[in-house]
Simulated scan of single mutants.
Amino acid sequence: MEPELRAKIGIPEDHRVEQTNTTWKQKSGRDTDTYWYDEFNAAGELVAKYIVEDSTSMYPPFGRTVTWSKE
């Protein structure tokens, strides 16, 4: 997970994040990558799951949008 996104979500530095799945699709002029992450605390316990969508326009001006949700 990118450090900027980790900070935006508010995941503590001592927590570990593991990517569990990835998908990619193109639709309506957008290229969208979807990532699933599990967050573990310092003791190794699962504390949260996240879905992150990273969408980029395939046409100028090539805007990018990153959204996330907590499961």
Rank of each mutant, 00 (worst) to 15 (best):
T67R: 08
K70R: 14
F62V: 11
T67H: 05
G44C: 00
P61Y: 05
V52T: 06
I9Y: 00
L5E: 02
F40E: 02
A43P: 07
Y35G: 00
T23A: 10
I11N: 00
I11W: 00
K27R: 10
R16V: 15
V17C: 01
T32A: 08
E39R: 02
K8H: 10
K49P: 08
D31K: 03
M1V: 11
Q19E: 13
T23E: 09
G44Q: 01
S28G: 14
T23F: 00
S69M: 10
T34R: 04
I51D: 01
V52M: 02
A43Q: 13
I51R: 13
Y37N: 05
E45F: 01
I11Q: 00
S69R: 15
P3C: 04
Q26L: 15
Y35F: 15
F62C: 07
R6D: 07
N21T: 10
E2V: 11
D14K: 07
D38A: 02
K8L: 09
K27A: 15
T56F: 04
K70A: 10
I51K: 11
L5F: 08
T56A: 14
A7H: 10
K8T: 12
M1P: 08
T67E: 12
W24E: 15
G29I: 09
I9C: 00
D33G: 12
M58N: 10
K49Y: 04
L5T: 09
V47D: 00
E2D: 15
W36D: 06
T22P: 01
K49H: 12
N21R: 13
E39T: 09
Y35Q: 03
A7Y: 08
S55N: 06
V52A: 01
E13W: 05
K49T: 11
A43D: 14
E13S: 13
L46R: 04
E18M: 05
A48V: 02
T56Q: 13
E53K: 14
N21P: 03
T23L: 03
T65R: 12
V17M: 00
G44A: 05
D38E: 13
V47K: 03
T22Q: 10
S57K: 08
Y37Q: 04
N41P: 01
D33S: 13
N21K: 11
P12S: 02
S69Q: 12
M1Q: 10
E13C: 00
I51H: 06
I51E: 14
T56P: 03
R30L: 14
D31A: 12
P61W: 04
Y35I: 11
E71P: 12
S57N: 10
Q19W: 00
K27H: 13
